[in-house]
Write a protein that binds this DNA or RNA. Structure first.
Lengths: 343, 343
DNA sequence: TTGAAAGCGGTACCAC
DNA sequence: GTGGTACCGCTTTCAA
């Protein structure tokens, strides 16, 4: 229901004009005389006229809304990204429809389906950990739906992508642990097939080899749902703690994995950083206040959302099919705090 | 753009029927023969037909979308509430449009305006700290827009409301501090006019008087933007620390105020709980991991969102104007941790 | 410079 | 039981 009942034909009647004249006057068409324009525009303003966006959508075949697909919104990284998305979307008169996959491929399919049937103009998404196959997305793109990936991107689909510099983040985190004197650095991460996992892992490995350490696969653990359940993170931790040579530091690759690892270490009464150093990929604003203060790779989440939306809108607004795509890599920042620095 | 091009008239043509027959068959009208229904429904399914929601909206005067107005989404309490909202909205085929006021009355006005012009079917909102005047909302309600408040509600507008048991939360938090041996318990809260402030404050005062303590207004500090800026919380803290008899405990009344207070105490090297006990209203899942672990009043945020949405949908779907309204109070829970317990 | 009319995709009233 | 038609509010030819 629109609570602003006045329509174009109301204006037309009131001014003894036709609906088409009013419509054109409001869109400042060159066909309409300055005098009529003024008349119409003034009347519209006085009566607080707003075009009905639904009628406009139906007519134009555009909905002025964009769909967002994220694993979850109850996570600082993603809520900050969404903040960034909204900041530019609203500015441009678009509204956003947020859906959460909860790391399920099936739910992701359902959400994408629901969104396309909701007539969105474009889609922003970060893949769920369960998603291997992106045929459904490729199909949508082929049908002409503008899609921009962020964070967890697809290699196979050719479109704009916005990611943090995961390689650098992984490299600096690991390098920092090495330089702080840790010798047996483990890595707990998301499933091996996701883009962020591969990039962060590559950074981790490069730092180790650069410093003359061996990369030992026993020290690398994958959580198949990106740490969604505590159980999978606990399993990874248990395996690490059971190794003949127990790791003396952990580099955790995501918000949830990081905080779960911290929690598990607390429960096991393992002292941080004395017995175990810890660095995480984490966007919480509470890092400083954790026990101990958490060394973290911080991602420019807000900026990622902003940039991704700008790129999406550029495709949506483009008059010609866009075929040249770009992957934007945003810098991460390592905040060194107590969890990785021995006294 | 709808990427599922098939429409009712496509089906009609293919089956040599009229559009109206197809429409009725799809809505399982009693007028249509079983045979025709089957024909149509089968064809629709095979061809993956979906009604165009925009056309439906235009025709029915309903958009199947609800507007959300919150101070900010980058806050665990609100992101959990939104999670709850979405869980029921999507289930019922509604999508949600989220807007953030950032605690500004002007932005709240703008958002509400934008939402109503977006043809929403109903609105869920939590007032900004700056909002005294709710005439604009009263006007909308009078025009027939269903509104449900949650968290920070308006007294003057008569509609459904969902809140946490703020009085009980404030009472238990304060009582717990008293029973832990603290003698000079301060309270830092949001502006005095907001509903949550009054309720939590009342609980605080009641606990003090029940235990025979005086209520001293010098120990109660208001942050005019609910702790949005660190500066206002710092000012409150500085004033408290400068009192002739410095408080030995603080009850903080919101997520942001709580974490800012914790941070400020860290910076001032004030030991918690030895020199200062701390209890907060806080929904972070990191409470356990903070330094020290944070005693907190936890609100059932997800449930609040769920309940508010159910109530909103019940108004939206009601065939008759709803005039009987209800305020649902959901229980809070006090999690006692180290920040309020002296060894 | 203005207006009539068609149509976006459905729905619903009214004939047949 | 089925189909014709008008209409939701707006945009866009095309004609006047």
């Amino acid at each position: 229901m629109n609570f602003n009942a006045i329509t174009i034909s109301d204006i037309a009647k009131a001014l003894n004009l036709s609906a088409s004249t009013v419509s054109k006057a409001l869109s400042d068409s060159y066909e309409i005389s300055a005098k009529t324009k003024k008349l119409v525009v003034d009347y519209a303003r006085e009566n607080n006229y707003r075009p009905n966006p639904i009628a406009q959508s139906l007519k134009k075949g555009k909905s002025k809304s964009i769909g967002i697909v994220v694993p979850t919104i109850d996570n600082q990284f993603f809520s900050q990204v969404i903040n960034g998305i909204e900041s530019v979307a609203y500015e441009e008169g678009y509204n956003v429809i947020i859906t959460q996959t909860h790391e399920s491929y099936d739910v992701e399919l359902l959400n994408i389906n629901a969104l396309t049937h909701r007539s969105i103009d474009g889609m922003l998404l970060s893949l769920s950990t369960e998603t291997f196959n992106v045929d459904h997305l490729q199909k949508l793109q082929n049908q002409g739906l503008p899609i921009v990936f962020f964070d967890r991107v697809s290699d196979t689909i050719n479109t704009h992508k916005v990611i943090a510099d995961n390689f650098k983040g992984g490299y600096e985190a690991t390098m920092h642990l090495i330089e702080s004197g840790f010798k047996y650095i483990a890595h707990i991460t998301s499933p091996a097939h996701t883009s962020i996992t591969r990039e962060r892992l590559a950074g981790y490995k490069k730092a180790l080899t650069d410093k003359g350490f061996n990369v030992d696969d026993n020290y690398i653990k994958y959580c198949s749902h990106g740490g969604k359940s505590i159980a999978e993170t606990k399993e990874a931790m248990d395996e690490l703690l059971a190794l003949p040579v127990r790791p003396d530091a952990i580099f955790a690759a995501s918000d949830r994995i990081t905080t779960t690892v911290l929690s598990l270490l607390h429960k096991s009464k393992i002292k941080i950083p004395a017995e175990m150093g810890l660095v995480g990929f984490n966007n919480t604003n509470l890092a400083e206040l954790l026990n101990p203060a958490l060394t973290a790779v911080h991602q420019p989440a807000f900026e990622i959302g902003k940039k991704a939306t700008e790129m999406l809108l550029s495709i949506i607004k483009s008059r010609y099919p866009v075929t040249e795509f770009e992957t934007v890599v945003m810098p991460t920042e390592l905040f060194i705090r107590k969890s990785s620095v021995r006294d």
